[in-house]
Simulated scan of single mutants.
Amino acid sequence: MKISELAQRLDVSPHTLRYYEKIGLIRDVDRAGGRRVYTENALNWMRFILRLKQTGMPLKKIQRYSDLRHKGDSTLSERKAMLLSHRQDLEENINQLQSHLVALDQKIEIYETLEKEYDALRAGIEKT
């Protein structure tokens, strides 16, 4: 598929794909008539890169992971360790976000109680 097709399927710009190729995240891009041609493997790899990015992994770490992947099976343990570490970071972020959500829910409950009390007070004043 052409760069425009890949960009559309991934919802990124062609510029992003060219940049990722330039920094080594996308390798072994075929050329046909001077144009980039991407395979389904490239599509799947880019989906994974974007998922890592969306989960907060810094681009430098993604580059490191990509370099290790390119070196082959001798780096399996190191790649796994990187993903386990990132997973732990995500779990910590999720726990922190859940804590924030609980605090927000508690504050919302306070406002709902205050609104009911205010409405009841107003209704009482209007009756008199």
Rank of each mutant, 00 (worst) to 15 (best):
Y20Q: 01
S13L: 12
D119E: 14
L104I: 15
Y20D: 00
L17Q: 02
M46K: 00
W45K: 07
A103Y: 07
L90I: 15
I125T: 08
M1E: 04
M57Q: 01
V29I: 14
H15D: 08
I108T: 12
E109V: 05
H70K: 05
D28Q: 10
I26T: 00
A32C: 09
I94F: 07
G33R: 04
I62G: 00
R31V: 06
S74V: 08
L114Q: 14
L43G: 04
E91M: 07
L76E: 09
R36K: 12
Y38C: 04
A123K: 14
I26W: 00
E112N: 11
S74Q: 08
K61W: 06
D73T: 07
V37I: 10
D89H: 12
E117T: 12
E92D: 15
A120C: 05
R35E: 09
Q98H: 13
D119Q: 15
K80M: 14
L25G: 03
V12A: 12
G56I: 08
H86D: 11
A123M: 10
L52H: 03
S13V: 07
L50W: 03
E115H: 06
M82H: 02
P14R: 00
T75S: 13
R31P: 00
R122W: 05
K107M: 13
R64N: 05
M82I: 15
R31K: 10
I110F: 10
R27F: 02
A103E: 15
I125R: 13
K2Y: 01
A103S: 15
H86S: 12
Y20R: 03
E109W: 05
A103H: 12
L52K: 06
T113K: 13
T128G: 13
A81H: 08
S99F: 05
D89W: 07
S99D: 11
S99C: 09
P14N: 06
M1V: 04
R122V: 10
A120S: 14
D30Q: 15
D119F: 05
Y65E: 02
H70N: 06
R122L: 09
A81F: 00
R47S: 05
G124R: 15
S77F: 08
L6R: 02
D30V: 12
S99N: 14
M46G: 02
L50H: 04
K71I: 05
G124P: 03
G33H: 08
V29C: 06
E91Y: 06
S77A: 15
Q63E: 14
L97Y: 03
Q63W: 01
L10S: 05
G124A: 13
I110C: 04
H86T: 09
E126S: 10
Y111A: 00
S99K: 11
A81Y: 03
R69E: 11
G56L: 13
R69I: 04
Q54E: 14
R87L: 12
M1Q: 03
K60Y: 04
R69L: 13
N95Y: 09
E112Q: 15
K22E: 15
N44K: 15
T75Y: 07
I3V: 11
R9C: 03
H70Q: 08
K127S: 09
L50P: 01
G56A: 08
E117K: 14
L43R: 02
P14H: 02
S77Q: 13
A81T: 09
I125Q: 13
Q88G: 02
R9S: 11
N41M: 04
G72I: 05
P14M: 04
R27P: 04
Q96C: 05
E78I: 13
A7M: 01
R79Y: 09
D67E: 14
I3E: 01
R27D: 01
E78D: 11
L17F: 05
R64D: 10
E78M: 10
